[in-house]
């Protein structure tokens, strides 16, 4: 069992899961967000190949209205 945190919400994974698969499982479009893995911004082109590891901390950000 792999335990991870997405935006401070704990989630357990039963099988190897890439960052891209994880995001899509949240019903979030890949082209609309930025991803931070353990305090590092991860380029989009690496989301398919990086697999979630136990105790990973992910943060997802989106664009919102602002001035």
């Amino acid at each position: 069992m792999i335990l991870i945190h997405i935006n401070n919400v704990a989630q357990s994974l039963t099988q190897p899961t890439s960052l891209a698969e994880l995001i899509l499982a949240q019903n979030i479009a890949l082209d609309s967000i930025a991803l931070v893995l353990n305090t590092q911004v991860v380029p989009r082109n690496r989301w398919q190949t990086i697999l979630c590891q136990h105790e990973d901390k992910l943060e997802l950000f989106s664009a919102v209205a602002g001035g």
Binding site: I6, N7, N27, I28, A29, A34, L60, F61, A63, V64
Partner: peptide
Amino acid sequence: VAMKRIDLKTGLDDLL
């Protein structure tokens, strides 16, 4: 535009 940590409970407001 600004940026914000997504609230997974309320979901994503598609601004883009």
